[in-house]
Every structure is written in C-alpha cells, then in structure tokens.
Simulated assay, not measured.
Amino acid sequence: MPTGPLHYRTTNVAWEVKECRCMIGADHFDDGTVPSDDLDDDSGDGMSVWDAADIWASKGKDPDYTFGFSEDELQQAHDED
C-alpha cells in the first residue's frame, strides 16, 4: 500500500527510473540521496558532462539520458574522449 506522495526513484542499475511512494516523498536514487537540480555546477556533487556523455552514448544517444546537458554538450564531451 502506498505511504507517500508519488515521485520517482532512479535505480543504480542502468539508470532505470521507477514510480515510488516511499516516505522520502521526493525524487531520489536507490540509496536515498536526492538528485541535484543543477548537474553542471562546480560544487562537485553533480555528474560530469563526460560521465553523462558516456552513459548517453551507451544508451544510443537517447534524449532521456541527457542528465540536464544539451545534446551538443554531450556530443562535444563524447568526441573529446
């Protein structure tokens, strides 16, 4: 039985996103951490454009796997590798 508001949980396996109704009540990763709203800030707690580009390319350049970056940014980072 659902206990919390509908939100999304991102699994650590293949970055799969699933509906969740746990008591966290906000979108989160399996370990309970909440994703950053600004993935390209310089605070060090977001995903780098190069890591995002690797995942994006491995998923066939699927627009669902851009992690807040533009496809141009991801392509440029992918080309630099």
Rank of each mutant, 00 (worst) to 15 (best):
Q76G: 00
D79C: 00
T3L: 13
G32Q: 08
A77M: 02
T3I: 12
P2C: 04
A77G: 02
D38C: 07
F69H: 00
M1K: 12
T66Y: 11
G4N: 06
E80C: 04
E19K: 05
V49C: 02
H78Y: 11
P63H: 09
A57Y: 09
S36F: 13
M23E: 11
D51T: 06
F69N: 01
S70L: 02
M47P: 03
G46I: 02
F29V: 04
E73H: 06
I24N: 12
T11R: 12
G32W: 10
P5M: 00
G46V: 03
A77H: 01
S36P: 12
D72T: 00
P2L: 06
F29D: 01
W15E: 05
E73S: 05
V34S: 01
L74H: 02
D64F: 13
D64H: 14
Y65P: 00
D27P: 07
D51H: 09
R21P: 14
D30E: 14
T66P: 05
T3V: 13
A52Q: 03
T3M: 08
P35C: 05
I24L: 12
M23Y: 15
S58E: 15
S48F: 02
A14R: 15
G4V: 11
V17C: 09
V17K: 15
W50S: 13
D62P: 04
P35F: 08
T66M: 15
C22R: 06
R9D: 14
K61A: 03
Q75D: 09
M47S: 08
M1E: 09
V13Y: 13
D51K: 10
C22W: 07
V34T: 14
P35L: 02
Q75N: 03
G32K: 11
S43N: 14
F69P: 04
